[in-house]
Design a protein around this nucleic acid. Structure first.
Lengths: 179, 179
DNA sequence: GGTGCCATGTAACGAGTTACATGATTTG
DNA sequence: CAAATCATGTAACTCGTTACATGGCACC
């Protein structure tokens, strides 16, 4: 029954934090938190909870009137699965899925203009994202039980700052496609 | 026919850099370069080239003896597709898929011990990865036509350094699960 | 009470991985 | 030449997404 993958634990974790939640709640919450560095589609947040109910890790309660929404809560087994996952040791394999970096990697096959544009756009995009994170950070600052959200968010902030420095540095060096 | 996705361009880009390559060559090359921040399975590097041949973006030549390997080269259309992609502007959406960060995000649902172990392990793992990158950086330094590989690799280095600082900082603060 | 947006769900598709399977080459 | 390893390929499955579809709710 180890059909639990990372998405499963994200859902378990989100439900744990929200207490009782619909798929819609999960999506909204994710979009403003964990989704910043680990994105997934809305549809997954409808499909995955159903699976977890099958596994006995979530309870489902459907409203009898109105939108007849499905409300999920953690079962004891779900709580246990989540903490077991947290107890499991993790190596550091991480991926940075960034189209801009990929294009830089292959930039020798394109034009100088494309490279210059890429650099400019990346600086702009990361600057914009940094602003978004700063806004969220201020909002979080007031809430004492959001330390872990805040810590992870802080990582996002650092990443954006680093990216801006990285691309700005390339701009300064005026990297050339051909020598 | 815009069934080209990111994987397609990675394959096109790798073939462009290698000149003529088998799927095995692509995998080997990727594992030591772009695979560090954008990983994919070996099987993809057999399936995707076949698709690109259908699209007329790669040429396929199969050896008549020995291992009867399939050797791929870029067609003019393939070259064009690659540079068109490079010319297309990109917003900065990037994802950091890092299990350690996820666990931190949900750490409030686990034990203090789990959190402490997580932090220790992450510092160790990122330190190890940093060493790997440093080794590669030295190897690349001698090769003048690897500026873009080097630039992208440098980003990997910065990321690992930042991660080490981030997790070390958490260790110093002795982050607690319960207040 | 009609219009437009919010919320919810699913079916079909496509991409990527795991696991399987096998042949070639090297090395002792 | 036997064993180990390198290299190559594919079939089946799982996951996640896109696109479709619809019903409730708020606001005028």
């Amino acid at each position: 029954m180890q059909d639990l993958n990372t998405s499963s634990f994200i859902v378990l974790g989100l439900v744990a934090q929200l207490g009782e939640a619909t798929s819609y709640d999960l999506k909204t919450c994710a979009d403003n938190s964990v989704g910043f560095f680990w994105n997934f589609s809305r549809a997954s947040l409808y499909k995955e909870p159903a699976r977890l109910v099958d596994f006995g890790l979530l309870n489902e309660r459907q409203e009898t009137d109105g939108r007849r929404r499905r409300l999920y809560t953690l079962t004891p087994d779900g709580q246990k699965a989540l903490s077991t996952w947290l107890d499991t040791r993790t190596d550091g394999e991480s991926e940075i899925r960034d189209i801009g970096l990929l294009k830089l990697f292959f930039a020798a096959n394109g034009s100088q203009e494309a490279l210059d544009t890429l650099i400019t756009d990346q600086i702009a995009a990361h600057t914009r994202q940094l602003e978004t994170y700063r806004t969220i950070e201020v909002e979080l600052a007031g809430k004492p039980d959001c330390r872990f959200d805040a810590a992870a968010l802080h990582m996002g902030l650092l990443y954006e700052q680093m990216s801006i420095e990285f691309w700005s540095d390339l701009a300064r060096k005026q990297l050339k496609v051909a020598l």
